[in-house]
Simulated assay, not measured.
Amino acid sequence: MRLSTCILPVDRWHEGGRDTWRRAEELGFHAAYTYDHLTWRVPFRDGPWFGAVPTLTAAAGVTERIRLGTMVTSPNFRHPVTLAKELVSLDDLSGGRLTLGIGAGGSGFDATALGQEPWTPRERADRFAEFVPLLDRLLTEDEVTHGGAHYAAHEARNLPGCVQRPRLPFAVAATGPRGLRLAARHGQAWLTTGDGAANSSGSAADSHTALARQAARMEKACAEEGRDPAELDRILLTGFTPDSTEGALDSLDAFADFAARHAELGFDELVLHWPIPDTRFALSPSLFERLATEGLSRAGLA
């Protein structure tokens, strides 16, 4: 199993931001992700919040080994053509260390920031179904022309292409059938935060059962696409399931138990939020660093 972190883009680069990304590499995390939003939920909505691509570009310049990625990019304010150009550039700047976390987006946060009405779940799914394969083409073909229901591209060029071949990996966030099919068809990883109902009012056992059902649906989607499920990494973004919220992982032993139970479900990457005081991610920095350096060993998963 691998352990990664998600660093919220809330600190000015020269007032702690740079040091955080460097420290993530020093602690040995597999990857460091950041949210690709224009704003986020309370208490972050009315505070500092920086852009994902510039932040990852800066992080690429002060690190050497750790993978970098978005968690997650969505069509809410992105267009595949301009996004592809930024991703090719960032993959080059990082020396081939970039992973694109990608999802359909939600109805809150930045869903209306460009002045549009919020899309229905079906509209988000329709856009995502066109967004992902078009982005796949833009990152693997020298020149792309496309005319679809939601997106267009005319002789869009992305030479010389990604450092990683045939392109940088996609970690597709999905729980529904259409998203899972996209993950099976285009993803190198499947990403989840758990089940919404279990996260809001369920127990740890409820969450575990719901994740097992999600994994089974992901495997079914792979079978329908003629793909071996073992080809997809399974990533769990923690901090939302009832057994990973604030206070639930308050010791090395609690984390070891959590990691072992999710390894049984086939998850091979856990993502911990970097601690932020007075938020749901207010884990003690000293414990967080022990989880980073000792947690998987304690669980027998290192």
Rank of each mutant, 00 (worst) to 15 (best):
L159N: 02
R165I: 05
T99W: 15
P166M: 13
H14K: 06
W274M: 05
N76A: 15
S286T: 15
F281L: 11
A173G: 12
L38D: 01
E269V: 02
E25C: 01
H150T: 02
G47K: 13
V271W: 02
R23C: 06
G103K: 11
P133K: 08
E64Y: 00
D206P: 00
L98S: 01
P121K: 10
P166W: 13
G247M: 06
L56C: 03
A129M: 04
A212F: 04
V271F: 04
P166T: 10
D110N: 02
E25P: 00
A230G: 14
T241Q: 14
A223I: 01
E269R: 10
E155M: 03
L138E: 11
E15W: 02
E294C: 02
A183K: 05
D278F: 11
L27Y: 12
G101Y: 11
V53C: 01
G194C: 10
W21R: 03
A302C: 03
E86C: 00
V172N: 07
D278Q: 12
P229C: 11
H273Q: 10
E25F: 02
R22S: 06
I276F: 06
G96N: 09
W49D: 06
E269L: 03
P118A: 14
L191I: 03
K220F: 07
R261Q: 14
E155S: 09
L283M: 15
A31S: 15
A152Y: 01
A149D: 14
P242M: 13
C222Q: 07
A259Q: 10
G179I: 04
R234N: 08
L98H: 03
R127F: 12
E15C: 00
V53N: 03
P133L: 08
A32V: 12
S74R: 06
A205H: 09
I7W: 03
G194I: 12
D91M: 04
